[in-house]
C-alpha cells in the first residue's frame, strides 16, 4: 500500500503548485505511513496543519477542499478505528474518561448520543474510582459494514459487586450515589454484560451501535 505522502503529493501539487513541497516539508513525520493507517487524532492533526498551510499559500483566497484531502489521507474510508485505554485512579481520571469518550465518538454519533455515551462511561469510571479503588477503562470505536460500534470495557480488581441482582432490579440505593448508576448505564447502552465475583473484581462490557452517516 502506498504511503499518505505518495497520495497527498499529487493532490497538493494540483491545488498549490510549487508551494506543495513547502507544505509537505512542514508536515508531521507520520505522513510517511500507509494510506488509511493513521488514527483519528493523527488525521485531525494533519488536516489542521494542511488547512493552515493552505490558507497561508493561497493567501486566504480559498481553503483547501477538506473532503479531497481527507480521502487522500484515509484512502476514502474512516480513519483507523480508534482505541483508548485509560487508568482510573484519581477523580480527574473520571473527567478524562468523559472527555475521551466525547472526543472518540464526536462526528460519528449524534450530539445527544455523544452525551449519553459519555455519561455511561462516566458512571462506569466513577464506580471504579469510588468503590473499587481504581481500575482500567478500554474505549473503542470500530467501523463495521453498516454501522459504527462503540464498546466500553471496565476492569477492576475491587471487591466485586455484591447484590448485583438487587441492583439491576432497581431496589437498591447506595449511601453515596443515587444507587442507579449501573441501571442507568444499562439504559444508555444497547448491551451490557457484567462479570463479577466477590473479592475477585469486576469486568463490565457494554456497547452501542449507530447507523453510519
Amino acid at each position: 500500500m502506498s504511503s499518505v505522502l505518495d497520495s497527498l503529493t499529487p493532490v497538493l501539487h494540483g491545488l498549490l503548485g510549487r508551494n506543495a513541497e513547502r507544505v509537505l516539508k512542514t508536515s508531521p513525520a507520520f505522513i510517511t505511513q500507509a494510506v488509511g493507517s493513521l488514527d483519528v487524532c493523527e488525521v485531525r492533526e494533519l488536516m489542521v496543519q494542511l488547512d493552515t498551510a493552505g490558507r497561508l499559500y493561497t493567501l486566504g483566497a480559498q481553503p483547501l477542499p477538506a473532503r479531497v484531502l481527507r480521502a487522500a489521507i484515509t484512502g476514502g474510508g474512516l480513519a483507523r478505528p480508534n482505541e483508548q485505554n485509560l487508568k482510573v485512579a484519581l477523580d480527574t481520571d473520571v473527567l478524562t474518561a468523559q472527555r475521551s469518550t466525547q472526543y472518540l465518538v464526536k462526528g460519528y454519533y449524534s450530539p445527544t448520543e455523544c452525551v449519553r455515551l459519555a455519561t455511561a462511561v462516566s458512571e462506569l469510571a466513577r464506580n471504579m474510582y469510588m468503590y473499587a479503588g481504581g481500575g482500567e477503562l478500554g474505549l473503542k470505536l470500530a467501523e463495521e459494514q453498516t454501522r459504527m460500534l462503540f464498546t466500553v470495557e471496565a476492569r477492576d480488581q475491587g471487591p466485586g459487586i455484591r447484590d448485583l441482582d438487587l441492583i439491576l432490579s432497581g431496589g437498591y440505593r447506595s449511601r453515596t450515589g443515587l444507587g442507579r448508576g449501573l441501571l442507568g448505564v444499562k439504559a444508555l447502552l444497547d448491551q451490557l454484560q457484567i462479570d463479577t465475583k466477590p473479592g475477585l473484581g469486576t469486568r463490565i462490557q457494554g456497547s452501542k451501535a449507530a447507523r453510519k452517516t
Partner: peptide, 9 residues
Amino acid sequence: SLIDSFAAK
C-alpha cells in the same frame, strides 16, 4: 457538558 448520577446528586 454532562450530568451523571453523581453530578445530579
